[in-house]
């Protein structure tokens, strides 16, 4: 069995030709490519979460909508808010980072 990384490397090793540029800036196009790939991976992760939710709901003997409708208050809600703030800080770091473009 070949690993996923080996499989991807094997595939990419056979690709030929150039990648014609569409956008005015090549770096921007590269970043768009990476962003779209991450978007696809997010969809993959969402599918995995969905599967787990359905399995847990099944084990609890309740509809999955009920499981998804759980709302936390107090300390747990605060922990989730802090985690979301940290995620946004990581994702938007370049807009906060004080280093200027040179």
């Amino acid at each position: 069995m070949t690993s996923s990384v080996e499989a991807l490397t094997s595939l990419l090793a056979t690709a030929r030709g150039n990648r014609p540029q569409s956008m005015a800036n090549r770096e921007a196009e590269d970043v768009l490519n990476i962003t779209l790939a991450v978007l696809v991976e997010l969809a993959v992760a969402n599918d995995r979460i969905d599967r787990l939710e359905r399995m847990v709901a099944d084990l609890r003997g309740e509809p999955v909508e009920e499981l998804r409708d759980l709302r936390y208050e107090g300390e747990i809600a605060q922990q989730r808010q802090e985690a979301t703030d940290a995620l946004l800080t990581r994702a938007l770091r370049i807009m906060i980072d004080p280093r200027a473009q040179s």
């Binding site: 080996e6 991807l8 094997s10 595939l11 990648r19 490519n33 779209l36």
Partner: peptide, 17 residues
Amino acid sequence: RAAQEMIWVSVGEPTYR
């Protein structure tokens, strides 16, 4: 173009694996 390349990544990984 990015989406077209991703087609082949999405099927190439399971093929070679």
